[in-house]
Design a protein around this nucleic acid. Structure first.
Lengths: 320, 320
DNA sequence: TTTGTATCATGAATCATATTCCCGCAAGAT
DNA sequence: ATCTTGCGGGAATATGATTCATGATACAAA
């Protein structure tokens, strides 16, 4: 027998059935177009978001989006999306202000070192976006190739370096950015273009064109050619566009990140093929001194980096 | 031995360490001037808010308010207060819109009945505040005295009644508004004014001036005089101001809510004394049909009622 | 000074809720 | 058909928020 409570529970009015996480959820859902993708973006599982959604929808008795592809928000969903777009920037700004107050306005410093020039492609828009939120943080780029860029942290010559591998350095913390596929580049009429994917052997009889970097940093060499005992003729070029030009001129093959050559492929300058059947995937990480990494301006930079990368680049995947 | 994690936890960026509850907390703290009072206002314990506060302060490494009376917010606290003032109205509005969408825009109806005329004092500002948020809800006042106003609900002549006692009616739910003290009113030079408080006996030799209501609704009669077997001479007046005028003119004594006579006391028209040593406290509740009470527009009205009462009236206490 | 009252802080226990894990189902894609 | 992928939902787990019980502190009154 159900005993109907004779009291109206007023504290429900203050219940947080509509919470900030719900707004982020709607926004991620709208931006990414699927619960699963929204989940990885929010560092949660698909199931978690599914539960959040049904709870929210049940509480207000409305459906928020149509379960069909392409995913479309209902009017109620649009309402929350608009709310989120309006409010979240204010919340985030307040968090930054709070962090600034807490650290007594002592400004941060970000001297950034990159292992490979290609990274500038997405680093620039990210730095621009970041500058808008943290104008007082002094940003600088540390130029040149470095044998071990993580050392730059110890030597206090850089505050954040972008690396392709995580190591175990004392006092240094890493953060995954994204993973991407290395594609083999060849001239449009190249005989290998008929193969769906290339193997180590395919590189044996052609010149390999690379950045001027030690083999340790060239994923193709380190993870594919060297294990197979294949050492093709080599040639170096500083800039991505130069490498692509050499490949198009039939001077040899190259292996570059998919996102770096996307535009050249679209214009048909060269063709690209996966390396090995499953593809050659690499990752990018940030590394920083732990003492810096805990600070808000720093975390926010890494987050911006990730966010901007996913917005700017195509064909990259979440990492870790 | 502590193993320092070599990864930067990025999902902390999306952590809800700054949540809506924190904004409500700051606002309640600022408005009420003490953690304890803020707690009752938010239907939580003092301890809960204290924990929330230290967690928030620890997370950002700032203090939010000075632990001294009068309570004063620090710059960080002011920051959050400003954020709250800006954002919470938008959140609340969105909740209402969501509720409207869910109920397919079928507008609500609020025919309100009150047991005692005095209630209009705080009912009016509350209704005004509510109208701004729910313009489509048709509000009406059900006039006249009623022997059992809860019956008006069954008879579908009212949708919400304000009563001084909760009963057990099928399909009717109650919600506590606030409790208040009934004060004995007397002329400034009245001999009883020398006593710190009045007892039942003190009413025996004077005329008692009341509203034209059945004894059942007059707390002084029902809970003090009748149990003591004291039945003074009686006289009635419709309006609070008229009762006060009669008392000032030495026509007798009266018992009225503290908040109803506050302004007259300040101007020295009459004097007031507690009734019995611990004072005579009464409560006010809303009653409504359960089917109505679950709907958002209705809950919101009750919440507004409470809120406005605490903002408008002095000397009232949370109830239940 | 003492006593009482009110407020806040704090640790432990409890309770509530959010998230994950795991599986089934349905809808394309192969 | 047979995979693959994404979603929903139950049960278990992890995380967290709230309360309870208590002690410390400040202030007012005795």
């Amino acid at each position: 027998m159900i005993q109907t409570n004779c009291f109206l529970k007023l504290h429900e009015i203050y219940s947080y059935m509509l919470a900030l996480k719900h707004l982020r959820l709607i926004e991620a859902l709208h931006d990414s177009g699927s619960i699963t993708r929204a989940a990885t973006r929010l560092y949660l599982t698909q199931s978690a978001l599914s539960h959040q959604l049904v709870a929210l929808e049940a509480h207000y008795g409305v459906s928020l989006f149509e379960r069909a592809r392409p995913l479309r928000l209902t009017p109620a969903g649009e309402l929350l999306l608009a709310l989120s777009r309006e409010i979240m920037p204010r919340i985030d700004a307040a968090k930054r202000d709070l962090a600034r107050l807490a650290e007594d306005n002592q400004p941060g410093k970000l001297r950034i070192a990159v292992e490979c020039h290609t990274c500038y492609d997405w680093l620039m828009p990210a730095m621009d976006a970041y500058r808008a939120h943290w104008p007082e943080v002094e940003m600088d780029l540390v130029g040149g190739f470095h044998t071990d860029p993580v050392m730059l942290l110890d030597e206090d010559k850089a505050d954040l370096v972008i690396v392709s591998e995580i190591g175990k350095h004392k006092g240094v913390v890493f953060s995954p950015l994204f993973r991407y596929e290395m594609l083999a580049l060849m001239a449009t009429a190249h005989p290998l273009a008929s193969k769906p994917c290339l193997t180590a052997r395919d590189f044996a009889n052609d010149t390999l064109i690379t950045y001027p970097a030690p083999d340790r940093l060239l994923d193709l060499v380190r993870r594919v050619l060297k294990p197979a005992g294949i050492a093709p003729e080599r040639r170096q070029a500083e800039l991505t566009v130069a490498i692509v030009q050499l490949v198009a001129s039939r001077k040899g093959l190259a292996a570059l990140p998919a996102w770096a050559v996307q535009s050249y492929l679209e214009r048909g300058y060269v063709v690209a093929r996966p390396i090995t059947k499953r593809g050659l995937w690499s990752g990018l990480y940030t590394a920083a001194r732990e003492s810096d990494a805990v600070r808000a301006y720093h975390k926010d930079f890494v987050a911006t980096l990730r966010e901007q990368a996913f917005m700017t680049l195509t064909g990259i995947e979440p990492l870790d």
